[in-house]
Design a protein around this nucleic acid. Sequence first.
DNA 1: ATTTATTTTTAGATTAATCTAACTATTAAT
DNA 2: ATTAATAGTTAGATTAATCTAAAAATAAAT
Lengths: 225, 225
Amino acid sequence: MISELSFTEENYLKAIFHLSSEGTETVNTNSLAESMSTTPASVNDMVKRLAQKKLIGYQKYKGATLLPKGKKVALTIIRKHRLWEVFLVEKLEFKWDEVHEIAEQLEHIKSPTLIKKLDKFLGFPTMDPHGDPIPDEDGVMKASIRASISDVNINSRGIVVAVNNDDTLLLQHLDSIGIKLGSRIHVIDRMEFDGSVSVTIDDGKKQFISKPVAENLMITITDTK
Amino acid sequence: MISELSFTEENYLKAIFHLSSEGTETVNTNSLAESMSTTPASVNDMVKRLAQKKLIGYQKYKGATLLPKGKKVALTIIRKHRLWEVFLVEKLEFKWDEVHEIAEQLEHIKSPTLIKKLDKFLGFPTMDPHGDPIPDEDGVMKASIRASISDVNINSRGIVVAVNNDDTLLLQHLDSIGIKLGSRIHVIDRMEFDGSVSVTIDDGKKQFISKPVAENLMITITDTK
DNA sequence: ATTTATTTTTAGATTAATCTAACTATTAAT
DNA sequence: ATTAATAGTTAGATTAATCTAAAAATAAAT
Ligand SMILES: [Mn+2]
Ligand SMILES: [Mn+2]
Ligand SMILES: [Mn+2]
Ligand SMILES: [Mn+2]
């Protein structure tokens, strides 16, 4: 039925998904060309093919939107991408920032059984190493909850996904206390008086973080209590 | 330097390797077409490309031979294919006979680091689930030693790779004592008197095998003492 | 409401990989 | 040594994916 898509077609669908805030909005030709590192002319050709296959909706001069079939494909690719990223980090000991390019290749391997078994092997993870949620088999993906550790509930756990400030001194400070993108944070307590937060980093020893630092430290929440 | 080969080019090199008894002999157009499920005309086109890239030697009407560069590529692909097969069987619990098609896809993933880490994760295996040897990083591959369990030394270990007789009764008998392709066999002893052999199957309990059965049971040897 | 700028679409080419049909070389048979 | 059969090559087309350059539509600015 779903005649077997090319890598390129799959990549276009994924790009449309990401550019349209999860497939809700319409995407225009130029931004898609930008995102795919290609020309608007090429995008125009491809958009017509995908429309013919009923994967996207498209009208001249009005942009493209994912149709249900196309959205399902996009979410399957994203699921595979993120599961492979978990595999690369958890099992093969790659670093957080080394896995994306390899996952870009692995996401196109075609075998539903493979993904089922990989999912099981990894213990059915719900989040990739960058804190992004993994869609389930039916293509359902929970929105990830992203917040500063100044705002989350006491006892929340999460993964560092961003630092909202690229001041070198801040980054150096975080580095010195062992916090980097991908670190697991457990928020133990927060002082009313000065807004400082105490956390554990990668389940290690307790660490105090001052309010100005805490406000800039963004995590995606894996667990709240 | 090695400008990045397409999946198709990689598959042609691999096919030439297999058809030329490990890259030693020359391969003719028709058998290559047969093996690639394509036409002689297509093969002819491709053979010219590969010759131009100095991966194979080719003269009109005289067939193709792997050049050192092409042989290296072929062995790298085979290495990746077999390592992925080990992964699928050992880690994801696929069956022996379910992994080839998936490995055909995975073998084209481009990342030397990935293969290094996968190799380590798997404990540096020397043989794939079908008893075929895995080339090392430099493309060196030991010939696999294949023999009937009537012929191997006492205390040899190996993997069942073939049954030299497709008599239903024999196959049913093997099935009933738990021997299938891929089973690990440890040859414990052999009786001079009747040529019967005692073995363990997958490191389980001891099992006697009569001479007529033993003669037909082929293993590739992983260990001899 | 024109003009200008931006975005989008078309037209025409190119490259990899494939095909069919026709032609040529080599090998085997008589 | 011819002839017949097989194997290998070329010519010409096709399809996916891309490109550049030109034209058309839409949006923004005056
Ligand atoms: Mn990624
Ligand atoms: Mn990710
Ligand atoms: Mn295989
Ligand atoms: Mn194998």
